[in-house]
Write a protein that binds this DNA or RNA. Sequence first.
DNA 1: TCAATTGCCTTTGTATGATGAATGAGCTAG
DNA 2: CTAGCTCATTCATCATACAAAGGCAATTGA
Lengths: 253, 253
Amino acid sequence: MEQQEQGSGMEERGQRRPRVQKNVTRAIASDICADVFPVGSYLPRENDLCERYGVSRTVIRETLKVLESKGMVRGRSRVGTIVCNKDEWNILDSQVLEWIGERIFEFDLLNCILEARRAIEPAAAEFAAERATVQEIADLERAWQAMRDGERDLVGFTDADVAFHTCLLKASHNQVFLQLVGIIQAALKFSLHASNEVAERRDEAIDIHGELVEALRLRDKVRARDCSMRMLDLAARDLKIAVERHRPALSAR
Amino acid sequence: MEQQEQGSGMEERGQRRPRVQKNVTRAIASDICADVFPVGSYLPRENDLCERYGVSRTVIRETLKVLESKGMVRGRSRVGTIVCNKDEWNILDSQVLEWIGERIFEFDLLNCILEARRAIEPAAAEFAAERATVQEIADLERAWQAMRDGERDLVGFTDADVAFHTCLLKASHNQVFLQLVGIIQAALKFSLHASNEVAERRDEAIDIHGELVEALRLRDKVRARDCSMRMLDLAARDLKIAVERHRPALSAR
DNA sequence: TCAATTGCCTTTGTATGATGAATGAGCTAG
DNA sequence: CTAGCTCATTCATCATACAAAGGCAATTGA
């Protein structure tokens, strides 16, 4: 698609000025995640970054401001810009999660997310049973049907699952829970991909998701919470598989 | 052209070049929170913002990038910068919470936070009972002692309470929970201030906090969870009082 | 008359150079 | 060897110039 970074050469500086801000931000963020700029080290000087990514200082500085606002780097006058420890990063920010991407396996994050989901999603399901609108329940049902329809389509199934859990958090009518949609999406995305070949688990998942929709219809808090917890037990198994598969990649380093 | 004395609210000027980025960011963010720039409206043109806040376009643009990265505004090329709906804001970002400040009462957020705390903190207490290091338990005890010592000092008591809950989340050794320290701090800050005159409640709170430390020492998950829940019952009462006191301010609008 | 194309205008996006400000390093003096 | 000063380097800000693109209106064709 679009890429202009890494062009250390960058001889031809044509008159054209494409919109590069987003790409540069993603490039630098990815490089940080990939340990090209390790935690604790200083980034190159702004002028060097300009060369390395082939853009002006304006773009570099706006990029650094964004990364700083997400806790990934910290700039100090005259000294330079240092990469912060990972536990200072705003890992709940969905953009940050996107930048981390598959490297989430190296962040020891998925387990934390699962623990958090066990605390949050059952509560959200309970609230949803009380507060979900008819429309929201219909949305959930549609997502559930998409899961059934996409039973053989890995990507479709995953997307539908993500949509389901997103709708559930929305239906809880709690702003805080809603903010956590990003980490849940990330967790689903990366743990499902590794376990989606196991067909019977998907059947089981579809059943439980359907049961949750029914519980919401009946405004049955207890059953909604129970469904959510069983869902998370499945998620725990999926995660286990996913981590197993990624361990080789880790030890290869 | 655009760089004489225009103050317009900002402090200090002259030929000098103070570091203004943070101030301008806070100023614009606060103005957004104060509905000077209401949700859904367009911000003034960048050049007008330069005049209004008395800084160059560079500073304005870096500010807008930061606000955009936190979901508060969205810029579209050539069209302008629009203020996003509040439910798109990254309200888990502690900087955003600082900018919101007291207006948190108008955001219908404190109730959501309490609900979230009821889901999260008991779980965190349980994990802490399993995982807290000796050092972390000592930190918690010190925070608890500070609460006792600051029993008569409103600010000191609140700070110690915030420190206690922060330590607790740290002791849970879960990165996701740790990220939620910001909203919990905000919740404590604004609900305690309204209820801290009620001395006997503070006594009760101190007792429960002490009991939690003891439970962690004994690695007693069940009791730790129970203490946490009782703490939140107190917090619920505090919040009720705080909201009552602020309702006049709301209806006055 | 109406609709689609085209070109202009305005505002954002990017580039660039200059200068103030700040801090670590090196130097000087005691 | 320490304390204080100077200086060089790099970030922070300002100012300006121009490219890019959305919206608007005039123009043109039917």
